[in-house]
């Protein structure tokens, strides 16, 4: 079980979060071609080591977090709120 430190809510159990995928890929611009979207949707690096991920805190503040998780040790670092809106505390 992961314990994820939410910048707003504090450290919470994994069950409160929904994994929203790889945060190292960015949605291409609207005018990008299909192959760029193909890479965005399907191609994944599967690294051994640090991996940027999206986690939505559905059981708490409902903010989308971008964090780095070590795929070997599950250590979590660099947790930040993705939100556009007002910065969290």
């Amino acid at each position: 079980m992961l314990r994820i430190p939410c910048p707003f809510c504090g450290v919470r159990d994994e069950i409160e979060f929904r994994y929203r995928g790889d945060a190292s890929v960015a949605r291409p611009a609207a005018q990008a071609d299909a192959s760029e979207f193909f890479r965005y949707v399907y191609e994944r690096a599967n690294p051994l080591g640090w991996h940027a991920e999206w986690w939505l805190h559905v059981g708490g503040c409902r903010q989308l977090l971008r964090l780095e998780r070590h795929t070997l040790t599950h250590e979590i670092r660099a947790v930040a709120v993705a939100a556009a809106a007002e910065p969290a505390r």
Partner: peptide, 20 residues
């Protein structure tokens, strides 16, 4: 219902940072 809400929250926060 909950999947759509999560989808919208994700899209709003990850891909629409400029929208109010």
């Amino acid at each position: 219902a909950s999947a759509v809400l999560e989808h919208m929250e994700f899209q709003l926060q990850a891909n629409c940072p400029g929208l109010d």
